[in-house]
């Protein structure tokens, strides 16, 4: 092995992120969660190949067909194949999770950095505002926002993003406060580093570990919240194969065709479980101190 290669390997092994990745791969729940998420992503990407039927195609002659070799998970009131709808629905759930949590992440991190770094009045105004948002039971605030904006998947994602902002802001702020006064930050300032450099080069990387954990767990709750909104008719609208919306359709046919309600629910549990498991695994891997908290 040449010297430069050796150095590279040495460097890699001492990198905390590499160390965390190694720990994640050792944790059973982390691996299980990662496996579920990779599976979901593959299903979403390969939906046109995997789905045996067109998820929107109605067939009045095949209404409420019980699960069989022809329709593995049965059909719904319009004779649509439930398996195909669940497969396509994975695209919507992943999209909701990613879009709404990205939104929360961008604004939450921004507010958290501003509040933590500048302190004083800015901190007070921002954090009081966050406290007020946390004074609402979160799903109710989302319901309120969507009720006013109008029932659409786009608005549901926006509402879910908004209600998740305070959690991210709090994490970033507390992490910034804990290291703002450290000597190396003073040193960076003494060397003439500007605010932006300090914030993005020193403060933000320190908040990364809890942020990654929170992001993963928030995707799980975002999928649940979106399903709840769609179930109430406030999110994805028919004939969208969103999992929560599929459950909403199933209410009237519980007696006749319980499978219409069963499988989309199991799909939601599966997807949410994946992100929850990965979140738990990441928490153990990134910060062993946070274990069991």
């Amino acid at each position: 092995m040449s010297d430069s290669k050796k150095n590279k390997v040495m460097k890699k092994n001492t990198n905390p992120w590499f160390e965390a990745w190694r720990r994640l791969l050792q944790s059973k729940i982390g691996i299980a969660g990662l496996g579920i998420i990779i599976f979901l992503i593959l299903v979403a990407v390969l939906a046109p190949v995997l789905a045996p039927y067109n998820p929107f195609e109605q067939n009045i002659l095949a209404r409420y067909k019980a699960p069989s070799s022809e329709h593995l998970l049965g059909t719904d009131e319009m004779g649509r194949d439930i398996l195909s709808r669940i497969i396509y629905g994975s695209r919507i759930s992943l999209q909701v999770g990613l879009v709404s949590v990205s939104l929360a992440l961008v604004f939450g991190v921004g507010f958290g950095l501003l509040a933590g770094y500048y302190g004083g009045k800015i901190d007070m105004v921002i954090m009081r505002f966050m406290d007020i948002m946390l004074a609402f039971p979160s799903i109710l605030l989302a319901i309120g926002i969507v009720a006013i904006l109008g029932p659409q998947l786009k608005n549901a994602m926006l509402a879910i993003g908004i209600i998740n902002v305070p959690r991210f802001a709090r994490i970033v702020r507390s992490s910034v406060l804990s290291i703002k006064e450290s000597e190396y930050i003073s040193a960076a300032k003494a060397l003439g580093a500007g605010d932006l450099r300090i914030v993005f080069k020193h403060l933000l990387p320190n908040a990364m570990a809890p942020l990654i954990v929170q992001t993963t767990l928030s995707i799980a709750t975002a999928i649940l919240e979106a399903a709840a909104l769609s179930f109430l008719g406030l999110g994805a609208q028919p004939p969208s194969p969103e999992w929560g919306a599929m459950l909403s359709d199933a209410r009237s046919s519980l007696q006749r065709a319980p499978w219409v309600a069963t499988f989309p629910g199991l799909a939601i549990i599966f997807g949410v479980l994946g992100f929850n498991l990965l979140g738990d695994g990441l928490r153990d891997a990134l910060d062993p101190k946070m274990k069991n908290v």
Binding site: L224, A227, A228, L254, P258, T262, G265
Partner: peptide
């Protein structure tokens, strides 16, 4: 407990109605 935190409450309600009522 892990399933519980990953489960939509309205689905659980629907399943309860189906199983215990219907």
């Amino acid at each position: 407990a892990l399933m519980g935190v990953s489960m939509p409450i309205f689905w659980l309600g629907l399943m309860f109605i189906w199983l215990f009522a219907v």
